[in-house]
Write a protein that binds this DNA or RNA. Structure first.
Lengths: 192, 192
DNA sequence: TTAAACTGAATGAACGTTCAATCAGTATAA
DNA sequence: TTATACTGATTGAACGTTCATTCAGTTTAA
């Protein structure tokens, strides 16, 4: 993975921020260009099309998540602690950078999420498979496929973050404590 | 709630089906009209605008879910059975009518999901509050707010359905059994 | 000097919405 | 009964706008 040109990164980050507030289709190329401080035409030096830009954003955002979560994992700790670290790291990342969470929510259910992209190598997925397999091998997690444990956990973090982001007023006004979902999810995946 | 005019319902169902495949912005009014077998202008007899149509679709889809799930609940059964019935009913509805699941995924994270709509009365939410409160009162579920239990369960059903819908090939090829998520979610909400 | 990057006005396709014209069905009048 | 008028839903071409993309000209850097 060669380093991303500075201006290319600038355009990606700018697009990410705008997509959170306006959605894919609410972000004209002209808006992304202006926000990044470049001319509309310049974007086409770095990307073939808007579709291409959004496709690259997916890999860009996924690598941020991967680096953040895997980089903070300490395999020498006991597995339960590692799980809560995982949860908190991902949760905090989504809180600090809601544009990443928002982008993923939109991308996953959009027509941009093609089979080709799904089949691409994913260090993030591979890392998760290993992570949950370790928990299984240690006898801490249910003896299920690591994939299903991954789906359970990532689904919970995602829905927690989605509620936090899209229903913040309701959460505050009803005094809902979303952190309880971490404990609940742990009970969902641990060996009973 | 007065009954929906036949042609209005036709347009709603037609739009629902198209939105699943093309997304909100991939469905021109002309396409929805053609699919419903009416002229473009006719849609404006029943809806003020495309936004209005999508807003009405939200309440329409939610009422389908509400009727399906609440209508199949049998309060005389023990709570665990009722939970698995709930899960299976919702899961089957999403399987039979993926356009409903797809619409909700898109709507929730879209700008259409306004505060005004969030604050509207929701029989579906009220029913769920009661449902989970019953489980708490019976001493079967964790003593948390019914809202957090609702978020946990609905989040799991949604991510299960999303994976089933958007990653069907991956699921098949890896032999992932998504039904295991029901059991896991039960362990997440039941009193430990 | 030259190649690459950059600019932003121009292009044309696509879209939501409008509206004058049509038409089927119903009421009215002879 | 029959001819005429009326009603309001329906139609689809046309309008104005928005937007992704292009490109001729300009700047930058080596």
């Amino acid at each position: 993975m060669e380093p991303i040109a500075e201006k290319k990164k600038l355009i990606l980050e700018s697009a990410l921020a705008l997509i959170k507030d306006h959605g894919f289709h609410g972000c004209p190329m002209s808006m992304m260009a202006k926000n990044a401080g470049v001319a509309a035409g310049t974007i086409y030096t770095y990307f073939d099309s808007k579709d291409d830009l959004i496709g690259e954003l997916f890999f860009y955002a996924k690598s941020i998540i991967f680096n953040h979560v895997s980089g903070s994992d300490d395999p020498s700790l006991d597995f339960k602690t590692r799980f809560f670290n995982y949860w908190n790291n991902l949760s905090e990342l989504y809180l600090d950078r809601p544009e990443i969470q928002s982008f993923f929510e939109q991308f996953m259910i959009s027509p941009f999420n093609t089979r080709e992209i799904q089949n691409a190598d994913s260090p993030w997925h591979d890392w998760n498979s290993n992570f949950f397999q370790e928990g299984i091998d240690k006898g801490i997690l249910r003896n299920l496929s690591p994939d299903i444990l991954f789906i359970m956990v990532i689904g919970s973090v995602n829905s927690m973050s989605k509620v936090r982001q899209n229903f913040s007023e309701k959460v505050a006004e009803r005094g809902i404590d979303l952190n309880q979902l971490a404990e609940m999810t742990w009970d969902a995946i641990r060996k009973q």
